[in-house]
């Protein structure tokens, strides 16, 4: 612990200060203006400085093995205050949420979009069994556990889900910080986007809901309440959606597409 750990804390304080001083920045994506929050700058700064290229001298102490391991192992505990905060966001709107509870349940089914949109693209790119692992869900711990149990991680399916896990860990929050407000420009309602933010990953949910709040600050309480209620529901239902809906749908579509593929080759 000790000395390097102090560096980690000081480094975190410095990154937070830098990110907050950059503050809220609007950038243009195509013809749409997207607000980037300090959290996006915080993750970009820490990732860039963590590149091996920079890890010399002082940075090597900050990004020491113990410090990086600490951040990874206890990230979940560092996130707990955020989860506790969500209770206060949901509570005042609890009645309203229960009234439209079925909408929350219905949008869970929307998580099948990973298979519906991802699988055809994966197959078109020439992926086969890897596509099973890479499109079952957003590749968080739930899918990782399911795939490793069913196929082991040292299989094509396993490599698919691991790759998605790594990409999601690295770029998921940045992706949703841009993607969520982008959809707002396509006419979707802020309530619907807020519900969709609860997709099963705590950091991705914070990034997308926070970016929505930045776009429509007057709706902050509704956005946070809907996003966290939906996130909580996903932690209850996510496994069931994956095992009983996503996995069978995926197998069906896989067989359909891959067989069609062979027919096409025969015809040619």
């Amino acid at each position: 612990m000790k000395k390097n750990f102090i560096y980690l804390i000081l480094f975190a304080l410095a990154v937070i200060t830098a990110a907050e001083m950059i503050g809220f920045q609007s950038v243009m994506v195509g013809s749409f203006s997207i607000g980037l929050l300090p959290l996006v700058f915080a993750i970009i700064i820490t990732m860039v400085l963590g590149l091996n290229l920079f890890r010399k001298g002082f940075w090597k102490k900050v990004y020491s093995k113990e410090n990086v391991d600490f951040a990874g192992k206890y990230l979940i505990f560092i996130m707990l205050p955020l989860m506790a905060r969500y209770g206060a966001d949901v509570a005042p709107k609890f009645g309203e949420i229960l009234q439209i509870g079925w909408v929350f349940i219905a949008q869970e089914v929307g998580n099948l979009g990973t298979v519906l949109l991802g699988l055809p693209v994966a197959l078109l790119l020439g992926l086969r069994r890897e596509a099973i692992g890479a499109t079952l869900g957003i590749g968080r711990e739930g899918e990782l556990a399911y795939i490793s149990e069913k196929y082991t991680l040292d299989s094509d399916e396993g490599r698919g889900v691991l790759s998605l896990y790594i990409i999601g860990t690295l770029f998921g929050t940045i992706f949703f910080s841009i993607f969520a407000p982008l959809l707002l420009h396509f006419g979707f309602s802020i309530e619907a986007l807020a519900m969709a933010s609860g997709m099963g990953s705590g950091s991705m949910m914070s990034a997308s809901s926070a970016s929505l709040v930045a776009q429509v600050p007057e709706m902050e309480s509704t956005i946070l309440a809907y996003a966290s209620a939906s996130q909580l529901l996903t932690s209850f239902l996510g496994t069931f959606t994956m095992v009983f809906l996503a996995a069978p749908l995926q197998q069906l579509m896989y067989r359909l597409f891959v067989r069609g593929d062979k027919h096409a080759k025969h015809a040619a």
């Binding site: 959290l39 970009i44 700064i45 963590g50 990004y63 951040a71 955020l82």
Partner: peptide, 16 residues
């Protein structure tokens, strides 16, 4: 959210 993402960024350093 900012401190959480700071630690999230540090935690993935070895995954790059």
């Amino acid at each position: 959210t900012t401190p959480i993402l700071t630690f999230a960024g540090i935690s993935v350093a070895n995954r790059l």
